[in-house]
């Protein structure tokens, strides 16, 4: 099942000028430094809970050139929540040590993905793990392509809601009802599932900032496993 609503057809050129000239960032590479920092910052926002260890599996160009481009420092900086224009980015290893966040890097070969892709495995306080896979697609832009086994295509150009749910009737309509009550307009909605009636992952992009309290409202439905609001 897949629901994709086209954005306003009048707007053909849907890339903002500020995504072209910009971001204002710390060098040296928009794809290998800024994009990398954004990927791990988004992974941190997706899992929301504190984590003690993050493991970075580097694919393609990320694997070949990460040291020279400061990709390693940028990935750790993002995992600490630093933004890509923070001058503290270069000191992220030291900051991670001070904050007790452990990290490691390894090379990995992934099938059919962008050259600059990273598989991030976050180990939570209780020992459970979350896996987020994403690509840095150029100019500091990113795409999250997998969250805990679910295929996604989140660009985070717009505020986004990530919902983990059981694939049951009425869940989607209740969620869209809640969004409508808050006058939030859905730009795109995409649902992927492991099987009929099984677990599903729903990604909703919204025009405009999403209030955080919406998480609790959506969580009231018994078929919802988790809800994360990402305003980036």
């Amino acid at each position: 099942m897949e629901i994709i609503k086209e954005r306003d057809v009048k707007i053909r050129m849907d890339i903002s000028i500020f995504d072209v000239v910009g971001p204002i960032m710390i060098g040296p590479s928009s794809s290998h430094t800024a994009g990398a920092a954004k990927l791990s910052r988004v992974a941190r926002l997706i899992v929301k809970e504190p984590f003690t260890h993050i493991s970075f599996g580097l694919h393609g160009s990320f694997a070949k050139t990460y040291k020279g481009h400061g990709t390693d420092k940028a990935l750790v900086a993002g995992a600490l929540g630093l933004s890509e224009d923070s001058e503290a980015l270069a000191d992220s290893f030291k900051l991670a040590k001070n904050q007790g966040l452990e990290f490691d890097f390894y090379e990995i070969e992934l099938e059919g993905v962008h050259e600059n892709t990273v598989k991030m495995t976050l180990t939570m306080l209780d020992g459970s793990q979350n896996v987020v896979v994403g690509s840095s697609i150029g100019g500091g832009q990113i795409e999250i392509i997998e969250i805990n086994g679910f295929v996604t295509n989140m660009s985070l150009q717009l505020p986004t809601i990530v919902i983990n749910q059981y694939d049951k009737k009425g869940v989607i309509s209740e969620v869209s009802g809640i969004l409508a009550e808050h006058s939030l307009n859905i730009a795109t909605m995409k649902l992927s599932r492991t099987g009929k009636g099984d677990r599903a992952c729903c990604i909703i992009e919204i025009d405009g900032e999403i209030p955080e309290e919406i998480e609790q409202e959506i969580m009231r439905n018994k078929n919802i496993i988790s809800v994360k609001v990402i305003n980036i």
Partner: peptide, 14 residues
């Protein structure tokens, strides 16, 4: 840029 200083990507940092 190479010194990990602040720049504006246009369209990229490189």
């Amino acid at each position: 840029n190479a010194a990990m200083g602040k720049i504006c990507a246009a369209p990229t940092a490189g």
